[in-house]
């Protein structure tokens, strides 16, 4: 494992913790897209099925369990415990527009036509666009709480760091996975507009507010 990969994983972990903590401490999931969280739950579930079938390392297994548990916990808090605070009027992105193409693409473009491999590929494609309901919600309300912005920043940076990891691995190990790389580029590009707003506004102490 190289430094970019490690920092990417830490950033990913940090994002998940920031979100869970925000919901728990404020007893509210206002401003958070339940649909994006459902999609992430689906992403982790379909990608980490190999947790049962193959052992890679303790680090790998622990991280997978943590991501799965945190994702399910977030969904539970949003849809059960703090359901009353869930802002579903603003969470109107049609997720079938993301899930159906991700399934189709996974069936068409994959490394191996086998169930576990297709589910992995689906999870990679779906992850790249899973944040769209959340970004759509922010654009609809025109603003985001600072803590939500920190969450989005950490989540966006994670795949960006993976891109550096893949560049490094291509150079150092001659290893590359085009499916992950292309999806990772798409995923990171989707955050660019947000990164700009985060750096120019949130880091200067201002609330993230979109121009009217």
């Amino acid at each position: 494992m190289n430094i970019f990969r490690l920092l990417g994983d830490i950033s990913h972990l940090l994002a998940i913790i920031i979100l869970l903590r925000k919901i728990w401490m404020s007893r509210s999931c206002a401003g958070i897209s339940g649909k994006s969280q459902l999609l992430f739950g689906l992403v982790y579930t379909t990608r980490y099925l190999d947790l049962i079938t193959s052992y890679i390392s303790l680090y790998n297994s622990v991280m997978k369990v943590v991501f799965l548990a945190a994702s399910y916990a977030t969904i539970y808090l949003m849809y059960v415990k703090f359901k009353a605070t869930y802002d579903h009027n603003h969470d109107t992105f049609r997720i079938e527009f993301l899930v159906v193409p991700a399934v189709a693409l996974a069936l068409l473009i994959n490394h191996d036509f086998q169930v576990v491999e297709i589910l992995w590929t689906f999870s990679i494609y779906l992850e790249s666009v899973a944040i769209l309901p959340q970004l759509f919600m922010v654009s609809k309300t025109g603003e985001a709480e600072s803590i939500t912005s920190h969450y989005l920043f950490a989540l966006g940076v994670y795949r960006g760091l993976y891109l550096l990891n893949w560049i490094y691995r291509f150079w150092a190990e001659d290893h590359y996975d085009l499916i992950a790389i292309v999806a990772g580029v798409v995923q990171t590009v989707l955050y660019c507009d947000f990164f700009y707003l985060y750096i120019t506004k949130v880091l200067r102490g201002k609330k993230l507010q979109l121009p009217a």
Binding site: H12, M63, D112, D174, D177
Partner: peptide, 10 residues
């Protein structure tokens, strides 16, 4: 010969 698929990454 393609590289074996690396599933170590998360």
């Amino acid at each position: 010969q393609p590289e074996p698929i690396d599933k170590d990454e998360l």
